[in-house]
Simulated assay, not measured.
Amino acid sequence: MTDHQQPLHTPRSLIVTFYGAYGRGGADAPAGPVPIAALIRLLGAVGVDSPSVRSAVSRLKRRGLLVAGRTADGAAGYGLSEAARQLLDDGDRRIYGRSSARPGQGWLLAVFSVPEQERHKRHLLRSRLARLGFGTAAPGVWIAPAHVHEETRHTLDRLGLASYVDLFKGSHLGFEPTAEAVARWWDLEALARQHQAFLDTHEPVLHRWSRRRPIPPEAAYRDYLLALDSWRRLPYADPGLPAALLPEEWPGGRAARVFAALHTRLRDAGEHFVRPVLA
Rank of each mutant, 00 (worst) to 15 (best):
S99E: 14
D157Q: 14
G170D: 04
D187I: 00
G170L: 08
L80F: 01
A130C: 02
F134L: 12
S127L: 06
L156D: 03
K121I: 05
H149T: 15
L159P: 08
Q86A: 15
D89R: 08
L159D: 05
D187T: 00
H154A: 12
A130F: 04
A179V: 09
R153F: 13
L80A: 03
D92C: 06
H195M: 10
G135K: 01
A84L: 13
D187W: 02
L156P: 13
R93P: 00
T71F: 01
G170P: 02
A83R: 15
G140H: 09
F134V: 11
V114L: 00
L125D: 04
A101E: 06
L88M: 11
A72C: 04
L191N: 00
H147I: 03
G74Q: 00
T136D: 06
R94Y: 12
A179R: 02
T152A: 01
A84I: 12
D89V: 14
A192R: 08
A181M: 05
A101C: 12
T152I: 11
P139I: 04
P145T: 06
W142Y: 15
Y78T: 05
D89T: 10
R193E: 06
G74I: 00
R94L: 10
G140D: 05
R158Q: 14
L161R: 09
T152H: 01
T152S: 01
L109V: 04
G160H: 09
T136V: 15
H149V: 10
A137H: 02
R122Q: 04
H123K: 10
R98Q: 04
T152M: 01
V111A: 01
A192W: 02
E150W: 06
L87C: 07
A183V: 10
G97T: 08
E151V: 12
A179D: 09
E176M: 12
P177C: 02
I95V: 13
G77T: 07
F198Y: 14
E176R: 03
A110S: 10
G160W: 08
F198S: 03
V165D: 06
E180K: 05
A138W: 13
E151L: 15
L124Y: 06
A162V: 07
R102Q: 15
A72D: 06
G97S: 07
V148Y: 10
L124G: 05
A179T: 05
L159F: 08
G97V: 10
L109C: 01
R126N: 14
A72V: 12
I143Y: 06
P139C: 05
L88G: 05
A83W: 13
L156T: 08
L173W: 07
P139M: 04
A84F: 15
L129T: 11
R122D: 01
L156H: 09
R153A: 12
S127N: 07
L156W: 07
Q117E: 03
L124P: 04
R184S: 04
G97Y: 06
Q196R: 15
A144C: 13
A162N: 10
R119K: 11
L159S: 03
E176S: 05
R128A: 11
L159V: 04
A190Q: 03
H195K: 07
V165Q: 08
A110C: 11
E118A: 02
F168V: 05
T152E: 00
Y96L: 14
L161D: 02
H120Y: 10
L80K: 01
A181T: 01
L161A: 03
L167M: 14
P177G: 02
L173N: 07
